[in-house]
């Protein structure tokens, strides 16, 4: 195995070899290496996400004729870190009337739905979590957990406004999920596979150019589906 063809595989094999050398069970060593790999991938994603939040705040601020975060660090780049620290040292309250289990489970599910998407997203041909043969469906299914978490959060807090808000947001997300699923059929038809890696590998001509309308619909539906500010129901 050449290191430069598949560096992650070589590194993983080496690491599991080290673990086995310490007297660990081979299967357990593989699971542990996979665990560390997932943890690394998620850590990278979260750090990227911190700066994406900064970009979103800056861009939305420009839309609204403001300048956005600009106090901490150059162009306010440190602002998200300050916000994280602030959120960490704030009191975490659960209202007495709320459904305590569901109330606390909702944000966890919301985050999990975003993180597990990346199990099938290939960053490079050899740099991916797992190449499921139902990758496209997995992405849709994992994304739908986000819808579930919104209705859980709205319903459990025992607040009439949040219930109404959750209903409205779920209606938006649900109605944009159908076109998103429908246009995902097009790359599936073109490549004859639902695996993300196969879809990417079979694009001699980019599918964006083969069916631009589908790409546009998917883009809009995906923006609505993640519930970002651009297409929020309010």
């Amino acid at each position: 195995m050449n290191f430069w063809n598949d560096p992650l595989k070589v590194a993983a094999d080496w690491l599991s070899g080290v673990f086995v050398g310490w007297g660990m069970n081979a299967v357990f060593a593989n699971v542990l290496v996979a665990f560390l790999g997932i943890l690394m991938l998620i850590t990278i994603l979260m750090v990227v996400d911190i700066f994406l939040v900064w970009i979103e705040r800056k861009v939305v601020a420009r839309f609204q004729d403001r300048i956005g975060p600009n106090r901490l660090g150059p162009f306010g780049l440190i602002q998200p870190f300050a916000d994280i620290i602030k959120l960490m040292i704030k009191e975490d309250t659960t209202p007495d009337g709320a459904d305590k289990v569901v109330y606390n489970l909702a944000p966890m599910l919301s985050m999990m739905s975003v993180l597990i998407l990346w199990a099938v997203v290939p960053l490079a041909p050899v740099m991916l979590g797992v190449d499921l043969n139902a990758g496209a469906l997995f992405i849709i299914a994992a994304g739908s957990i986000g819808t579930l978490s919104i209705i859980m959060a709205g319903w459990s807090s025992n607040n009439k406004f949040s219930v109404i808000g959750a209903f409205r947001q779920v209606a938006v997300m649900v109605s944009f999920e159908i076109p998103m699923l429908a246009v995902l059929l097009i790359p599936t038809i073109f490549s004859g596979s639902m695996g993300m890696n196969t879809i990417i590998q079979s694009q001699n001509i980019w599918y964006v150019f083969l069916s631009p309308l589908a790409a546009l619909i998917f883009l809009i539906a995906a923006i609505a589906g993640v519930g970002t500010r651009a297409l929020r129901s309010c």
């Binding site: 040292i89 606390n104 944000p107 797992v130």
Partner: peptide
């Protein structure tokens, strides 16, 4: 099994964040 492991890690991260805040 890998996807299941991803589910577990995906739950550990937010649980950890809320735990640290707690």
């Amino acid at each position: 099994l890998y996807v299941g492991l991803f589910f577990i890690v995906g739950l550990i991260i937010p649980v950890g964040a809320i735990g640290v805040a707690w």
